[in-house]
Design a protein around this nucleic acid. Structure first.
Lengths: 340, 340
DNA sequence: CTGAAAGCGCTTACAG
DNA sequence: CTGAAAGCGCTTACAG
């Protein structure tokens, strides 16, 4: 490969002139510029990223930590990755994807070795082990998901409390008095998936305030277990007229379950989920849902991260915790409870 | 961050001694090694990846080109990414993920700038525009998907011809005489998805040899269009007793379609698909399927790529085109055609 | 067994 | 407007 020295020689100028001609960081005579450009074109010159990183302390790479946990619903993760990756590319950054099961080690490796200018953490837990590593790192970090302690990082998440309240009140207004909430598996919650209880507690409070019975159950994140869980929940609470789903796998499995039980929404059962429009389309889900906005959250996280990387915001500027408000996309799966 | 110079100073040795102590590339006295190790621990030293890359011409990063095309079924792509990423990490490499719509530009950027030691291309088309770029690059490349011209790259793919033949003969042996094959959308094929016609032509030849009627149709890759396409195909060919699916979206949509038509497999219709066990589980698909082996293909591609990167194989060694043989996973969705 | 030094390919003050 | 040179943080022949 051609180096900047080759270009300089061919153009008959110094290496610094080539560098400045390419970066535009100082004025260059038209003649010099033309000769540099011709030489660059002739040699097919592209600066060596490693050398540039060494000289500038900037890699133009963002680390993306996405753990594919055995017990989580992988397709839901994909949209966050796409949102982050697309936005990063738009802003001139490449993505170093770390999917190791032990995210802490991967995070330490890419920050310590200066492979990245900043980091986006997906799927953040209440007491996420990666956060101490991130705080100790010299690079800034942005999270998708709300941890217990937000110091030193920018945080973006769906407002799960508002989501829980909103879903419950939507069904309450339609006249439902007994509802089932299907959450994520218990181990997701135990591992620190705070959004599970944030949504549930908010829904429970709203239910209590309105005198509504809310049966909170947890469901598996995989087939076929989640199907069994749904049947069990419906068997256990025959009086329930509405279903709230905070579990993507449950949403994907519900159509078969309802077919099997001869139920139609909203005729026999009102259903409202929490997943993205993209997800609804992929899985052909006919239920109204609160948009989880994965692409938007990924985009917000990267934008803020790049502002920090490029010094537009400094560590002295306050770190943000930004919630996306729930928006209910109506797909006609909720209505008045069946008479009687 | 601490540099190698800081470590050397603290340990009271030269920088080369630190480097050699860490790499093990030359003998070191026990005393020196102990002092270096202590200094490394005290300073929390990790070599700077950019500096090392500059000195060694090795980045320990593999580029992964995965385009998320608007008209493709994204969840199917995820498993290839996981296979590639996990294998790369196991072998000591990180992954630079490029998802730009214009893959050619991204590929040129990461190879020209030497950000990567090698490249894996996913979703390779018959006449893939990225291949000329890859062949011109100094880094080796491995493909998942068979292009028209395999020169200069290692290629891994499911044996789609054998798959088509196998699926057809499986149903033929059970006594079926009229079958429908649902392929990918036409534009996937036009864009160069050779696997579509490779499977179809092989199935058609096998059908002809056995005097079986095979209706080849194409189906959308999204909901709800694919549901309509399936209904239309079943309406158009009421005599068909078996369905062959070479379209993930069709497989995901078929349970609803069959419910709507009151059909059960294999009682009314025998069904065989082509997708991974992981996919079957995620979407709760009850159909027997030929395993598409995304994790295995990703793993094979990375293994071979790393062999080339590390010089275990050179450009003089022949490039391989390796097909994974189809294996039918029986989920009980095929049987004898309904009597009459 | 060890150190001083060259070199990887850039960027950017410094001097003119 | 331009060039010579220092420096980024490593690795690795070279010399002892």
């Amino acid at each position: 490969m051609a180096t900047i020295g080759d270009v300089a020689r061919l153009a008959g100028v110094s290496r610094s002139t080539v560098s400045y001609a390419l970066s535009g960081k100082r004025a260059i005579s038209d003649q010099a510029r033309a000769r540099v450009e011709a030489a660059v074109a002739e040699l097919g010159y592209t600066p060596n990223a490693g050398a540039r990183a060494l000289a500038t302390s900037q890699t133009m790479v963002i680390g993306l930590l996405a753990e594919f946990l055995e017990d989580e619903f992988a397709p839901a993760m994909l949209q966050y990755i796409q949102g982050v990756s697309n936005t990063a590319h738009e802003l001139g950054y490449d993505i170093l994807l770390v999917t190791e099961a032990e995210g802490t080690r991967g995070l330490k490796r890419i920050t310590d070795s200066r492979m990245v200018d900043g980091v986006v953490l997906l799927n953040v837990a209440e007491d996420d082990g990666r956060l101490p590593v991130l705080r100790a790192a010299p690079q800034p970090g942005a999270l998708v998901g709300l941890p217990g302690d937000c110091t030193g990082v920018d945080v973006f998440d769906l407002d799960f409390e508002e989501t829980g309240r909103h879903m419950l009140e939507h069904l309450a207004r339609l006249g439902h008095r007994e509802l089932i909430l299907v959450s994520q598996p218990e181990h997701v919650e135990l591992r620190g998936g705070a959004y599970v209880w944030r949504l549930r507690n908010a829904a429970a409070r709203a239910a209590q305030a309105r005198g509504i019975t809310l049966h909170a159950v947890s469901g598996a994140s995989r087939q076929p277990d989640i199907g069994r869980d749904l049947h069990a929940a419906l068997d256990a609470h025959p009086g329930a007229t509405g279903l709230i789903l905070n579990n993507e796998a449950a949403a994907a499995a519900l159509p078969s379950v309802m077919h099997e039980r001869g139920l139609a929404a909203p005729r026999d059962l009102s259903v409202v989920g929490r997943y993205s429009a993209e997800f609804a389309s992929t899985f052909s889900l006919p239920y109204s849902s609160v948009e989880s906005a994965p692409d938007r959250l990924g985009r917000m996280a990267v934008r803020q991260l790049v502002r920090r990387i490029e010094g537009e915001i400094t560590p002295d500027d306050p770190y943000v915790v930004r919630f996306v408000s729930p928006e209910l996309v109506d797909r006609g799966s909720t209505g008045a409870p069946p008479a009687g």
